[in-house]
Structures are given as C-alpha cells and as structure tokens.
C-alpha cells in the first residue's frame, strides 16, 4: 500500500476514486443501454436475449462484472462518506443562502441523487440480476426461437416486471436521478482527473450533457413502453 494509501486518506485521493469509479460506471451504462435498446427491434426479445446470453456467459465479461460491482460499491460507500464528511465542514449555517446564485442545484445534490439511484438499483438488481444469475422464479425460464436458439428468457422477465406500475414509476424516477447525477458527474469526473482545457473542456461538457439526457431517456422509455404494451 504505502504511498497509495492517499486514495483513502487525502481529500484529493478520495475524489480520484469517485472519478475513476464514476467513469467506469459511465462506460458500463453505455454498453448496458445499447443492449437494452435492442428490445425496440420488436422481435419478441430474440436479439436482446442473445446479447444477454453472451454477456451472462462470456468469462471476460463476467470478470469485468466483478470489477464493476467492486467499483460501484466503492463509489457508493465513498460517496456517502464524502457527502457526510463535507456536511460537517460548516457547523454554523448561513442565514441567507441563495445557492442557485453561484452553482447548479444538481451539482450540490450529488449525494441525494446518488441515493435515488441506489434505491432504484436495489430494486433493479433484484428484478433482473438476481433472476438471471440464480435462475428464473417461474415457468417462462427458457424459450426456443425460430433460429433454433434456446435461451434464458430475460426478456419475458421484463414484460412481467413492467406490468407493475410501481416498478415503472421507480424506474423512471431512478433514470431522472441518474440523468441529473450525470449532468454534473460526467464533466466533473474529467475536472477531477485534472483535465481542464480551453478546447477539450467545452467538448467534454457537450458530450456530457448529451450522454446525461440520451442514455437515461432510453433506459426510461423501456419500462414505460413495456407497460403500455408498445414493445412486442
């Protein structure tokens, strides 16, 4: 450990962890979003199930998944710690505090937005990750397609889960939380890594805004579309 202990002990080290794990999560979201979007092919989930099968059984991806979970956990624990620690730095509060005068509300609410994501995440992992890793709880577990493919049917799991309006609402709220978390987090992570440049930074900011709107939007449309029966 030695010199590397600064990632736990120094304020800059802890920020580095937030940024590196945050960017890894962004990379994960991109892949996850692309795979989910295959349900829009309206092919009864065949493409989606093939992709899910690959992701679930490829050893490289399963290994990366362990890293991702560790990173997510580190991001969450350190994020909560950072938020609580920072709150203690001003014991005496301001009488007048027009926060919006000098910063965006979502940049000041990363802990709250992260907690919204966390609530969604618990529900989400229970719905799909637990089911896909530890077996289907019901009869529709496997499905044979015209192509002869015989796959675990995670797609049908989506159809089932999104019958429930409560699940749809939590998913949409989770996506909104994610969108705002990224609206600050995406460009913030690059700033933390020390990348601030008069031509790169505006580019990073634009990509960040586009990512924070498009990716959560695609994620959010899926449960709504399933609920309304628009995806078959």
């Amino acid at each position: 450990m030695g010199v590397l202990s600064f990632v736990f002990s120094s304020s800059l080290g802890r920020k580095l962890v937030m940024a590196v794990t945050g960017i890894s999560l962004i990379a994960f979201l991109l892949v996850h979003c692309a795979i989910n979007a295959t349900v829009f092919f309206n092919d009864g989930g065949e493409t989606f199930n093939i992709a899910a099968e690959f992701m679930g059984h490829n050893w490289l991806i399963r290994t990366a998944e362990i890293g991702l979970f560790a990173g997510l956990l580190w991001h969450i624990i350190q994020g909560i710690w950072l938020t609580l620690d920072n709150q203690k730095r001003r014991k005496s509060k301001y009488g007048a505090n027009p926060g919006s005068a000098n910063s965006k509300w979502y940049s000041r609410s990363m802990g709250l937005l992260g907690s919204i994501i966390l609530i969604f995440l618990v529900m989400h992992l229970k719905h799909f990750w637990v089911v896909s890793r530890f077996g289907m709880p019901h009869e529709l577990g496997h499905l044979e397609y015209a192509s002869g493919e015989h796959l675990e049917n995670l797609y049908v799991e989506m159809v089932n889960v999104f019958q429930n309006p409560v699940a749809v609402i939590v998913y949409v709220l989770g996506c909104i939380g994610l969108g705002y978390h990224l609206l600050h987090g995406f460009s913030s992570a690059f700033q933390t890594l020390g990348i601030n440049h008069k031509s790169y930074t505006p580019m990073i900011q634009s990509v960040g805004v586009a990512f924070s709107i498009i990716v959560p939007l695609i994620f959010a449309i899926i449960p709504v579309a399933f609920h309304l029966g628009l995806i078959k």
Binding site: L82, N86, T192
Partner: peptide
C-alpha cells in the same frame, strides 16, 4: 485545517 473536499460545484 478542516476544509472540505471539492465536489466541483463551481461556486
């Protein structure tokens, strides 16, 4: 000195 950690709010 007890200053907090930066979260890049820009304030």
């Amino acid at each position: 000195e007890g200053f907090g950690a930066c979260t890049n709010t820009g304030a």
